[in-house]
Design a protein around this nucleic acid. Sequence first.
RNA 1: GGAGAAAUGGCAGAGUGGUCGAAUGCACUGGUCUUGAAAACCAGCGAGGGUCACACCUCCGGGGGUUCGAAUCCCUCUUUCUCCGCCA
Length: 424
Amino acid sequence: MLSLPYIRENRDLVIKGLGIRNIKDAESLIEAVIDADQQRRSTQAELDAILAESNKISKEIGKLFQSGEVQKANLAKQKTGQLKDKSKELSEQLGNLETELNEMLYQIPNIPNDLVPKGNSEEDNEVVFEEGNIPELHPGSMPHWELCKKYDIIDFELGNKITGAGFPVYKGKGAKLQRALITYFLDRNSEAGYTEVQPPLLINEASGLGTGQLPDKEGQMYHVGIDNLYLIPTAEVPVTNLYRDVLLKESDFPILNTAYTPCFRREAGSYGAHVRGLNRLHQFDKVEIVRIEHPDNSYQALDKMVEHVKGILQELKLPYRILRLCGGDLGFTSALTYDFEVFSTAQNRWLEISSVSNFETFQANRLKLRFKNKDGKSQLAHTLNGSSLALPRVLAGLLENCQTESGIVIPEVLRKYTGFDVID
RNA sequence: GGAGAAAUGGCAGAGUGGUCGAAUGCACUGGUCUUGAAAACCAGCGAGGGUCACACCUCCGGGGGUUCGAAUCCCUCUUUCUCCGCCA
């Protein structure tokens, strides 16, 4: 969430930024926030004055008792009664104002970076890079879900029996290929300086709030009601929350973590076309990279992450492109996002396989993730994350693009991980 | 799951109703000394709100209560440790 001082000091910038996201009534929303904040502060000041008065009297009473002037002390006690009532009333009022203010702040998305183009939907995203050859497939080539069946490597019906739609079972070489990709991604990330972590797969409410999944995206997560925990929709949540309520030193930057985790998403309301096979699942594997950066370096860091993901896709020799998301498609918490898409030859469409974002201070503010700057002041850090990479669609692209008449040819870099060269 | 003990600043650790945002040690920062370092010595050193800056307010695991006044007393929740039970 945006910080109040930031909104106060950059009123016009904020309104303009929300405009890029096509937010209606941005101006009145921000005005309401500033008003509520003003009210909050004056109520706070009023309450503080009363508390100061009552603290003063209490100290005097203490002294009177010690010097044995009990009568005077009892007299002074009476004075505090009124103050108490008043302070109770005010602090209740203050609590309400704060709740109200927070509710408003929770509705305000991050301010887009200047590079973010205006736009309404994914149609308006900007293609900024494209690389790799789209292979000519042999006659009789098929989409990945048919390949999965043909070679018996991923079984959707079986998963359906065990759990339900969107929970496939990986078998034999399919399971091995998946594991190979995970290990390969983790190794690549480690080489690039990311420290590997294995976080919990269930998170509490505070963590969900910290990275912005709550309260706005509650319905997208699986909720374990009995313990009030949520299954993670991405490793971003537990890994970024490692740094919740942390005060860093400048010398701690940059912080680089990578984690492999399964991800769970309810995907409520996204049925219909384009959800076949591996295209959209309720449970999938992903390797994530997370960075905590000094604000001065975060955009440089974002570029590094983009370059890193590019490197992996080049090694896999998959045709891909990079999009800069427009205001209408940009995630709630992000200031700038690059999506990576792999071309699915048999489906003749692009599949999103990675999303790399800079959240600037938006998450850090909720997380209370700060550092001591040169002036000795606490300042919010910047958080970034990206997938490197999401497994199912990489797998889909790989199966489809690497299919030949004699089987699926495993990319060179993966062979030492799979232990086989071809799925046939 | 049962019984007991505990939770204080970056860490360790005092503090059991008032002058305590909190002794002391370590760590850290600056300075003196030194060719440099170490040691020694001196000084500074929790967080948030608020203010031009002060003042002032809040915070001793979370929440609630008693009291004129709570780190200190009471209730409750959470977590950690020890013992018992169960168990991958």
